[in-house]
Amino acid sequence: MKVVSRALRGVREHVRTQLVSVATVALALFCLAAATLAAQNIGEVSRRWGGPVRMTVYLADGATAEQIEALRSALSALPEVGSARYVSPSESRAVVAGDDRVMASASAELFPATVELSLVAGATDGGRVESLASRVRRLPSVSDVETYRGITGQLQSFLASGRTATVVFGVIVLLCAIAVVSNTVRLSLHARMREVEVLRLVGASPQYVRSPFLAEGALLGGGGALVAISLLAFVFFAMRGRVDSALGDVLGVRPVFLSLPILVAFVLGGAGLGATGSALAVRRWLKV
């Protein structure tokens, strides 16, 4: 406790410098927390849309009702398939035509009859989807199979790029935060050089001299992290009410805030980051 009280005494003595530092660290960590929040929600979108979750089986012309039902039953029994629903040509016409009267008046025979498959979780990776499509193509009454891999592949690639950008951004922000804390502690060290000199003079051990500076760095980092997540929470909950339903309709997922374990880890990580920055400064600038 004495170490913390000595660190707090140092903070009090140079409160303006420390406030500027906490604000700077908080800004850097706010960016990191926002990136983490984005990564978490992108992950959710990725899970929802990252793989082909459906497949369309086009039926051969002239397939009878019995053949269609037999095919639907056979498809339903496949382990990769969650559900199989028959869509008649008139249903297809209604979906495609929508409000278009010209299309709605076209003959239903112009539209294909299909069986829409929804795939179970774990069956949506590229290899298994292709294997399933190949098996389905060999079944009687099947004309063709659409796997939508092109579209989901592009989305997957986009999400992967987003994740990589988040990680790179996070690393840059971390390094910046370490540099900020390190420089703040360096300033503090220079401002408190007389104190260090006196401590050495009266026989303080190197650990005794260094420990308050390490604690000060940890306090700066932890304090900055707390300010950052408070600010992010304020912004998130203020905006969520406005964009929540729109995002839910478009993406099929609703944005969620960082979980408690992540928040705790963030504050502890901020403190660790501050201690690291401080340790670098102490190692470089404090000779005891």
């Binding site: 050495r200 003079l201 009266v202 026989g203 051990s205 190197p206």
Partner: peptide, 14 residues
């Protein structure tokens, strides 16, 4: 040793 120097200084007033 460097570790002993602080103990020396605790016995010297300057």
């Amino acid at each position: 040793t460097d570790e002993s120097v602080p103990f020396l200084r605790r016995n010297i007033g300057v």
